[in-house]
């Protein structure tokens, strides 16, 4: 029997009826057609599907969609400001922090949550926070550098906004 799911995704309110067995990632990808969130495993062990729920990094394959009822979900599609990429996204491009790009959405969403908690992380802190994220291409170092580069950009943006 379908149940009602009311939640906010990327700032937009959704009020839909879904089968209770659906995982959050299925609703995002299949119902809302937000296919920027990818899936890499069946065991909750790759973090490719990471989104933000109420500002925290969470694996969307390991959350029942109905459990997101009343929550605010942010996916990769909600990161850019109109046509302007988010500083984390910019930093990923500038630092060649992806190759195939399939795990990138999850990496960026986790980075976004991390930088909100810790605006100036060290290499080790980034490693610790991003540890669940499987990347088969990059060897992680360039991702780490991008995240720390993004930290600088976000801080610069903040002080710019303050100056205004």
């Amino acid at each position: 029997m379908k149940k009602q799911l009311k939640f906010i995704v990327n700032g937009n309110p959704y009020d839909i009826w879904i089968e209770p067995r659906l995982l959050l990632v299925q609703v995002l990808r299949d119902e809302l057609r937000l296919t920027g969130t990818h899936r890499g495993c069946d065991s909750g062990t790759c973090c490719v599907c990471t989104v933000n729920i109420d500002g925290k990094a969470v694996k969307s394959c390991s959350v029942l969609a109905l459990q997101a009822n009343g929550k605010e979900v942010l996916t990769i599609e909600g990161m850019a400001n109109g046509p302007k990429l988010h500083p984390v996204q910019e930093a990923f491009v500038d630092n060649w922090a992806f190759q195939c790009g399939f795990c990138t959405s999850g990496q960026i969403m986790a980075s976004n949550a991390l930088l909100k908690e810790n605006p100036n992380p060290t290499r080790e802190e980034v490693q610790h926070a991003m540890d669940g994220h499987l990347c088969r291409c990059t060897g992680y170092n360039m991702i780490n550098e991008a995240i720390r580069d993004a930290a600088g950009r976000l801080q610069a943006q903040k002080s710019e906004e303050k100056a205004k």
Partner: peptide, 9 residues
């Protein structure tokens, strides 16, 4: 314990 994504939920 596991990763931060697991610990957050």
């Amino acid at each position: 314990l596991s990763n931060v994504e697991t610990r957050n939920w």
